[in-house]
Design a protein around this nucleic acid. Structure first.
Lengths: 166, 166
DNA sequence: CTCAGTGCAAACCGTTTGCAGAACG
DNA sequence: CGTTCTGCAAACGGTTTGCACTGAG
């Protein structure tokens, strides 16, 4: 990733988006976008800052946040909150558009999976409650295969559950 | 809610939990717990602070946070993050234990719904990827019936999507 | 040349923590 | 009475914002 693909198709789409909005195409915006488009991971802002630094780019955190905002609005990048206390960003191109996430509670790794069943759930909810679904987020927390094979086990939060002792 | 049910069954369970852990049962803990057990809403810390204030109780925010931590650990209360920038807490007793949430993106209201389908999804994921599911969170964002009837419509984020124009 | 973007640092805001004094057991 | 809790206020950490300066168009 030492040579960010500033001329990739994703960057081209982002630049078109900026021009459509009458916003300047700047070096910083393209460099931040290239860092996200050049990875298929779920990146934190610190991850992105690290990529930029290792590319020799010195870009303020505020600009990273402001550019991520544009990328999310352009729909080229998705924002996620896995409950870690900060957000993660993922390139939406080069991957199946609709997927949910498996988050390992031990090592923090994130896998993706598809859920064709969710469309039926949304339809049922709309029918039963009159709610109009627009988007959804399903996160399954658990132990990834690697952690299980490493012998990690799940201990129920360390505290007894008094509910069933009523 | 002006007279918190300090002698309710939920409080009794919480007190038993504290005693089991060798922790003191204090007035503050019981009052915070009563505020949560006395509501079936999804309360923010500010909501809880308001309930306590209207009950004439003057309890520091730090104590509210510390008590909520205990309530969550006791499994009597569930913690939720609907992406609003703060957490919400819900009484787990007096409601069906397993449910997911519908969050209205316009008025912020939260409804609950059950998803028997999720067990099958988890089983499939475990089979296909070796991941071991422990818990999940499904949130469907959209427009509640009331907002729809009030004429609120969904406009797709205000910005065009260049993806399909590739 | 003009207006928007950038970088810095300070502000923000929900949450956590340190510590002196109060309360539980 | 010793140990834990409480309240206050300060610290924290990710994110946002104000403002002088730089750079795109």
């Amino acid at each position: 990733m030492s040579a960010p693909a500033l001329d990739s198709g994703s960057i081209r789409l982002f630049n078109r988006f900026l021009r459509d909005k009458g916003m300047p195409v700047t070096h910083q915006r393209n460099v931040v976008a290239a860092a996200v488009f050049g990875s298929d991971a779920h990146l934190s802002v610190d991850d992105i800052e690290g990529i930029l630094r290792s590319d020799g780019e010195r870009i303020g955190k505020a600009t990273i946040y402001r550019t991520l905002d544009l990328l999310v609005k352009s729909r080229l990048v998705a924002e996620h909150d896995f409950g870690e206390g900060f957000k993660r960003y993922e390139n939406r191109l080069m991957r199946q558009s609709v997927h949910q996430h498996l988050v390992c509670t031990h090592c923090g790794s994130v896998e993706e999976f598809e859920t064709p069943e969710l469309a039926a759930i949304e339809a049922r909810v709309a029918r039963e409650s009159g709610f109009r679904p627009i988007r959804h987020r399903l996160v399954i927390y658990g132990l990834c295969r690697e952690c299980q094979e490493a012998g990690v086990t799940f201990e129920p939060e360390g505290l007894a559950c008094p509910i069933e002792i009523v």
